[in-house]
């Protein structure tokens, strides 16, 4: 059996607003194993981003148990074990493309030649010709692919992508998902993609459904 990267038992995320509690995530139990390809499908506001942020260690559950058995404690997940692609544009505007990818490599501190590694990641996604551009000069698709390159540059064991194609047109979105899957080919890294696009979801082995904070685990075993 592949390693269990993430294990959640009755994980809950509750927010207080105006004296009442709002459950962004109802008690949910799940596992993510090495090599998993999971689509997290649900409408906007259903709680997909909340779950991703919890799994990435960016947020803390208000109930239940969340562990990363094969990765370590939650404060050692990033950078290194978990790579993230955010929903919003997340490149640093004052750094060019290659420097943006260097950031997590340098933060990790143990990479001998961060620039070479960053260039290799860009090459693998076909972005070698835009290394000197700054984010303002990139198209939306290019920016998301650069963010993807940044997520995979450290060769993480778990990649979390929050609506990576949400702001892209269909053909660009397809190219981006292709790039993501291709980059993980032959790797045992797990991938969890939050999306509300069924076509993107169909390209994953597994689909989780999220609705009003409730998580339903459904194995769909679809392929392109």
């Amino acid at each position: 059996m592949p390693d269990i990267l993430v294990e959640g038992k009755e994980v809950t995320r509750r927010f207080s607003q105006g004296g009442s509690d709002i459950y962004a995530l109802q008690p949910a139990s799940f596992e993510i194993r090495a090599g998993d390809r999971i689509a997290l499908l649900g409408r906007s506001g259903s709680g997909k981003s909340t779950l991703l942020h919890l799994i990435a260690g960016l947020d803390t559950p208000t109930g239940g148990l969340l562990r990363w058995p094969a990765l370590g404690p939650h404060d050692a997940l990033r950078p290194g074990f978990v790579g993230i692609v955010f929903q919003a544009p997340s490149l640093i505007p004052t750094l060019n493309v290659v420097e943006n990818i260097e950031v997590p490599l340098r933060i990790a501190g143990n990479i001998s030649s961060p620039q070479t590694r960053a260039l290799a990641a860009l090459e693998s996604l076909g972005l070698a010709d835009i290394t000197d551009k700054v984010p303002d000069e990139l198209s939306g698709g290019q920016a998301q692919r650069v963010a993807l390159a940044r997520a995979i540059a450290l060769k993480p064991r778990l990649i979390l992508a929050d609506e990576p194609t949400g702001q892209l047109d269909q053909s660009i979105a397809r190219q981006t998902v292709d790039a993501l899957l291709n980059s993980l080919e032959g790797s045992d890294a797990a991938l969890l993609v939050a999306t509300h696009d069924p076509s993107a979801a169909r390209r994953m082995k597994t689909t989780w459904l999220m609705d009003h904070g409730r998580l339903q685990l459904t194995a769909m075993a679809e392929s392109t």
Binding site: G80, I92, T94, P104
Partner: peptide
């Protein structure tokens, strides 16, 4: 004005020192 950049750095795993 650039708090968003610092948020990104933090999300990428930058320690408080970094």
């Amino acid at each position: 004005e650039r708090r968003r950049s610092f948020t990104i750095l933090s999300a990428l795993g930058a320690t408080p020192r970094q």
